[in-house]
Design a protein around this nucleic acid. Structure first.
Lengths: 129, 129
DNA sequence: CGAGTCACTTTTGATTCGCAAGTGACTGTG
DNA sequence: CACAGTCACTTGCGAATCAAAAGTGACTCG
């Protein structure tokens, strides 16, 4: 198994920022969160088809990591070949303000970024798990 | 040259979050920002001696990237062997609210993280470049 | 003169990425 | 009912990045 998201791996320090980066500090994890939380995508195929074209192995890996961290949960919507939909937990939904702050900074300082419409920046209400 | 921070590399999309992650989406860059902005460290040796023990090649690389992105600037404080101190630009100082939001989420959802004292979360006033 | 400091570089494996192709369990089509 | 298609992943593998450690150059200090 390649980048199998296996190790819980010891934290580098008790600093909240370092801890958060141990979980979200890469180029894809927060895009998956963005797509589930603000773009309302829930199935593997929908998440795979985002504009940045995340490789499917990394998507599977990130969904697994986020699930272990209880940032997202999943619900089986089909039994025969088991298929799941992914949802934010309360913990995950609480990332809304952080994403909004990220977008705000980028809109201010990175020319060419589009300004997300307000309704996309609203926290969507989904069922808990 | 190995991971020499060379390529400007095309953006993955115009999404502000994706753009921000292209610059800050790794485990070290925002820790360097944290140390300069909120911990008040400015010299290579000070930054190298942080709790998370960043490897010196990565520190040099991140300082270079942040400088290219104009998030930080540097000032020569000694000429003989040229030595520099690193400072936030206005653009970099504007990351304060984002760091605060990160710390807030981590404090809420990651047990064991220490709560930064308010004065550490204040944006320090430094000269512009 | 020689040890020490400071700010990096370079070297050398280990790890992680990213792309592509493969897999298994169906589903719908002729 | 064989067979192409879909969906959600897995697997393989070369390439890029990372991490640990040692090296470098220009001094300074005893």
């Amino acid at each position: 198994m390649p980048g199998s998201s296996a190790k819980p791996k010891f934290e580098r320090s008790r600093c909240p920022i370092a801890n958060l980066l141990d979980l979200f500090g890469d180029k894809w994890t927060l895009l998956v969160v963005r797509d589930i939380l603000v773009a309302g995508r829930h199935r593997f195929g929908e998440l795979e088809a985002n504009r940045e074209a995340i490789p499917s192995n990394l998507l599977a890996d990130r969904l697994e990591r986020l699930r272990r961290a209880r940032v997202i949960s999943r619900r089986r919507y089909q039994a025969k070949p088991p298929r799941y939909e992914y949802f934010m937990t309360r913990k995950g939904r609480d990332l809304g303000p952080l994403l909004r702050e990220m977008a705000r900074w980028a809109n201010r300082h990175m020319p060419g970024t589009w300004v997300p419409p307000v309704e996309l920046m609203e926290v969507s209400e989904e069922l808990e798990t």
